[in-house]
Amino acid sequence: MKKAKEGWKELEDGGRIIVAGNSVLYKTGDWRTNRPVWDESKCTQCMICWLTCPDSSIPAKDKKRIETDFDHCKGCGICAEVCPVKCIKMKPETDFQ
């Protein structure tokens, strides 16, 4: 269930945002029409996709990228474009519904 938005009394003065790093709360995954499908077996872990993702939606663990964060990935396709071994392919979101 969607949480109701705050009323004016609960807001900060001046429209300030006082919680740092709160953009993670704003889920943009539903903006996506194409999904990056990552083939881990072909991946060389060059990390170019991790570096270029404009939404920081490619998490890394132990110096290796892991599966895309689909809660935030907007499906822009930059990762697929920059991948030197073409191990990321953009597939229509309808294929997964």
């Binding site: 938005k5 009394k9 807001l11 003065d13 300030r16 006082i18 740092a20």
Partner: peptide, 25 residues
Amino acid sequence: DKPVTMGPLDLFDYYFEHKRKQSEG
């Protein structure tokens, strides 16, 4: 130590509440 964002984009979902709060202030 207390990071803050001032003057972010504020559209139809919050702008009115912020103005109401300013008015009360």
